[in-house]
Design a protein around this nucleic acid. Structure first.
Lengths: 339, 339
DNA sequence: CTGAAAGCGCTAACAC
DNA sequence: GTGTTAGCGCTTTCAG
């Protein structure tokens, strides 16, 4: 493996000059520059990045902490983040916390050990007090996550508004008994969404029956379970709010198999606007999150912070979501859909 | 930021001793070991990984090249790979080639610049001759990818068998005109699959009509398009083989919206056994790939090669796939499904 | 414009 | 058991 020393020797110049050429510094004569380039070419020289990192105190790596890659919301986030990172010549390291607070801390350590220049936290498992200490070692950005106490940038969506809008829509369709499903974000995301949900009920003078709260619903088979559990009830809800398209699809799919008509027998809302919502029949009403925009903003803020070595200081970017009404909640939409 | 030097001074010992404690070497007295640990604790010391990488010639990073994260097959692969890597204290770097040969080369350069200890190539965009040169800098593993000329480990599935099995199943259901869809892997994956497809047709004495070959089908909306394009034909196929569950779901979904009955009017097979195949109604017949097993084998082989600094030398691990018959191709299955 | 030399933080001979 | 010391490959003063 050729080193800068080899190149220098081969070109009959000093390491300094070679380094200047590599980094495109001024004050190198054209002739020598050419000589260096030839030598590099001939030796197949490539700068060793560990040495550069050590010297420059900068790795060109960014860690993204997510619960799981397979969760479509997060993989969509990752996709855009990676594209944005690559554009600025940064590499993305994937860190799956698997909803484990301990794993999260392990990954946050990448910042301490200088393996990454910054961290993007998309779903905090630890309390902020446990995370705060890491912010002195490099920028930590909350993306999709939110905490009142956090003194770092936060890029997030108005979950409360989203919960409110979707629920309000169900109420407008005449529903009085509405079930609530969410995943196990221990974070403020779920609670804000639930606040919005409750707010809409409250406003309409409706009570919530805790019996119909499902707070561990993540996958489509969780949806299947949920359907089965309410299926026989006489006082069952006529509509279900879910925090995930997969759960919604699971419910719809199972209901159809049991001969139910959606939305007549049961109205269902999803969350995320994933592909599946358009493939189901009826199509599923859902909430569209501006994932791309968030990802881009996140990377922009992060790179800015890395550049300025500014690790603390809050900064809030809130995005709005859009309710997309489809046939799983709305008869009219169903009719329009058939064409 | 505390360094090893600081710890040594604070503990009244040498850097060597501290280093020994960090790396759990023998020959350190219990008393001093304790002293060192206390000093590390007090100073909040964490070893700098750039320095370690430089010194040890090892980064603890692995690059995974995939076309796109959002493709469920690849995100599933990533998920398992990351888990396996984390278990051995390796970090995974995500590299999206976006089907670009140039981007692929950029990412392969991570090996040259020593930013990673190894590379997993899941879908080669370049010809092997362009990739071969990188193998002298570190291990390159083909996972899901295959090339006769490659002198590196290959972990892959028997795509030909899969194509054959699925097609044969369609023929057994009485179909004589079968359409073919695949994505744009420029790799041998697609061609092997197609070989299997053709082999089954041939064996049954059936001809293939090139008019019904769709070789750029990736997403569910591609599936929608495909349905529309065959919809009006009088001599249209009665069955479709697809290389992707999403395409299959798109076809099924659109067909149902047009009042077709699946599989009576059109039989459809998917590929990958993604969640969506069980959510659609009818459920979709598909081919299950042993993604998890492949991912684990890949990581095992890669870590082994890193350990032994053995970069070249072929080694083939072929996995079999399983056809999962569901209602989208099989009436009986449909009846059983209704229960 | 160019080069000599110090040092980023760590590990591993080698000597004691 | 423990310490001294020479680098890993690179960038950047500083002096010329």
């Amino acid at each position: 493996m050729a080193t800068i020393e080899d190149v220098a020797r081969s070109a009959g110049l000093s390491r300094t000059t070679v380094s200047r050429v590599i980094n495109d510094h001024p004050y190198v004569s054209i002739a020598k520059k050419k000589k260096v380039k030839e030598a590099m070419e001939e030796l197949g020289y490539v700068p060793n990045s560990a040495a550069r990192s050590l010297r420059n105190q900068r790795t060109g790596m960014i860690a993204v902490l997510i619960p799981r890659v397979m969760n479509p919301f997060f993989s969509q986030l990752i996709e855009t983040l990676e594209l944005a990172a690559a554009e600025s010549f940064y590499q993305l390291i994937i860190c799956q916390t698997q909803y484990s607070a301990k794993k999260e801390l392990t990954y946050l350590n990448l910042l301490k050990t200088k393996q990454v220049d910054g961290v993007i936290l998309t779903s905090a498992e630890n309390d902020w007090s446990a995370i705060e200490g890491f912010t002195e070692y490099g920028p930590v950005i909350l993306c999709n996550e939110f905490d009142e106490r956090a003194n770092v940038p936060m890029i997030y969506m108005d979950q409360q508004e989203a919960g409110y809008k979707a629920t309000r829509h169900l109420i407008e369709q005449g529903h009085r008994k509405i079930a609530y499903c969410c995943g196990r974000f221990r974070s403020n995301v779920a609670s804000a969404r639930e606040e919005g949900f409750m707010m809409a009920l409250h406003e309409a003078g409706l009570a919530f029956d805790e019996q119909y709260a499902f707070r561990e619903a993540i996958t489509s088979s969780d949806g299947t379970e949920i359907f089965r559990s309410i299926r026989g009830d006489s006082g069952r809800p006529t509509a279900i709010f879910t925090g995930s398209d997969e759960v919604a699809a699971g419910i719809v799919s199972e209901a159809l198999r049991h001969g139910w008509s959606i939305p007549r027998d049961l109205a269902v809302t999803g969350f995320d606007n994933q592909v599946i919502t358009e493939l189901m029949n009826p199509r599923i009403t859902t909430v569209e999150q501006p994932v791309r925009e968030m990802a881009l903003k996140t990377m922009e803020v992060l790179l800015e912070r890395i550049r300025n070595r500014q690790y603390t200081g809050t900064e809030r970017h809130q995005f709005s979501m859009k309710l997309i009404v489809r046939e799983s909640t709305h008869m009219q939409a169903e009719l329009a859909g058939i064409q």
